[in-house]
Computed example of a mutant assay.
Amino acid sequence: MFRKIDPARAPSPVMLTIDGVGVTADEGEPLAAVLLRNAPYSCRRTPVSGASRAPFCMMGVCFECLVEVDGATSTRSCLVRVRDGLDVRRQNHRPGPDGGLA
């Protein structure tokens, strides 16, 4: 669905995991962009209806791109820059009061 415009100008590749699956991305690119390139092309599900949500504004305003990053829930993926070893989980449940997924 989404692809890089000029892969020849890409910075060094790094490895991260999304839902336990290894993914290669460019260091420093927005995490939301990586999620949009990897199926199921969404970041979270709404707690009420379970509808899929994906990045929309790409600047931290809409909160549609919330994911769990290195154990921290409700992290706006559009504001996170990819680095080596990042552990990302799509947020499919409402975060609990302790910050974990309920």
Score class of each variant (00 low, 15 high):
residue 53 R to L: 13
residue 39 A to L: 06
residue 26 D to L: 09
residue 38 N to H: 13
residue 68 E to Y: 06
residue 57 C to W: 06
residue 46 T to E: 10
residue 62 C to H: 05
residue 30 P to T: 08
residue 46 T to F: 00
residue 47 P to G: 10
residue 55 P to D: 04
residue 27 E to C: 10
residue 35 L to C: 03
residue 68 E to T: 15
residue 50 G to A: 07
residue 33 A to K: 08
residue 58 M to R: 05
residue 57 C to I: 08
residue 51 A to L: 12
residue 45 R to P: 05
residue 32 A to G: 03
residue 48 V to S: 14
residue 39 A to Y: 06
residue 55 P to N: 06
residue 59 M to F: 00
residue 63 F to A: 12
residue 26 D to W: 00
residue 41 Y to P: 05
residue 34 V to N: 01
residue 60 G to P: 05
residue 48 V to M: 15
residue 63 F to Y: 15
residue 31 L to F: 01
residue 56 F to M: 14
residue 32 A to S: 10
residue 35 L to F: 01
residue 43 C to V: 07
residue 56 F to S: 14
residue 45 R to L: 12
residue 37 R to G: 06
residue 70 D to S: 11
residue 63 F to Q: 13
residue 40 P to C: 04
residue 40 P to V: 01
residue 47 P to Q: 10
residue 48 V to H: 14
residue 49 S to M: 14
residue 26 D to N: 15
residue 51 A to R: 15
residue 43 C to E: 03
residue 42 S to G: 12
residue 49 S to V: 13
residue 38 N to K: 10
residue 43 C to A: 14
residue 61 V to C: 10
residue 46 T to Y: 04
residue 56 F to W: 13
residue 28 G to Q: 10
residue 36 L to R: 11
residue 58 M to H: 09
residue 26 D to R: 11
residue 34 V to K: 02
residue 40 P to L: 04
residue 29 E to C: 09
residue 33 A to Y: 09
residue 61 V to G: 11
residue 32 A to C: 07
residue 43 C to D: 00
residue 59 M to T: 05
residue 46 T to L: 09
residue 58 M to T: 06
residue 25 A to I: 02
residue 33 A to R: 10
residue 68 E to I: 13
residue 38 N to D: 08
residue 41 Y to V: 12
residue 35 L to H: 02
residue 27 E to N: 09
residue 69 V to R: 03
residue 62 C to N: 09
residue 59 M to C: 11
residue 32 A to R: 02
residue 27 E to L: 08
residue 43 C to H: 04
residue 48 V to T: 15
residue 48 V to R: 15
residue 61 V to D: 15
residue 55 P to T: 07
residue 54 A to S: 15
residue 38 N to W: 06
residue 39 A to K: 09
residue 60 G to E: 07
residue 39 A to S: 10
residue 60 G to F: 06
residue 46 T to Q: 13
residue 51 A to S: 15
residue 58 M to P: 04
residue 34 V to Y: 01
residue 42 S to Q: 10
residue 32 A to F: 03
residue 40 P to K: 06
residue 36 L to A: 14
residue 32 A to K: 02
residue 39 A to P: 08
residue 33 A to C: 13
residue 34 V to I: 05
residue 40 P to Q: 05
residue 68 E to P: 07
residue 65 C to L: 03
residue 59 M to V: 11
residue 33 A to W: 08
residue 57 C to L: 11
residue 34 V to Q: 02
residue 42 S to V: 09
residue 46 T to V: 01
residue 47 P to M: 11
residue 66 L to M: 14
residue 56 F to K: 13
residue 38 N to S: 09
residue 70 D to R: 11
residue 43 C to P: 03
residue 67 V to F: 03
residue 50 G to I: 03
residue 49 S to P: 00
residue 66 L to D: 04
residue 40 P to G: 03
residue 47 P to A: 12
residue 51 A to V: 13
residue 39 A to C: 04
residue 70 D to Y: 12
residue 53 R to H: 12
residue 27 E to M: 00
residue 52 S to L: 15
residue 39 A to R: 09
residue 69 V to G: 04
residue 63 F to D: 12
residue 41 Y to C: 05
residue 42 S to F: 14
residue 66 L to I: 09
residue 50 G to H: 04
residue 28 G to W: 13
residue 69 V to T: 08
residue 38 N to Q: 14
residue 70 D to K: 09
residue 46 T to P: 02
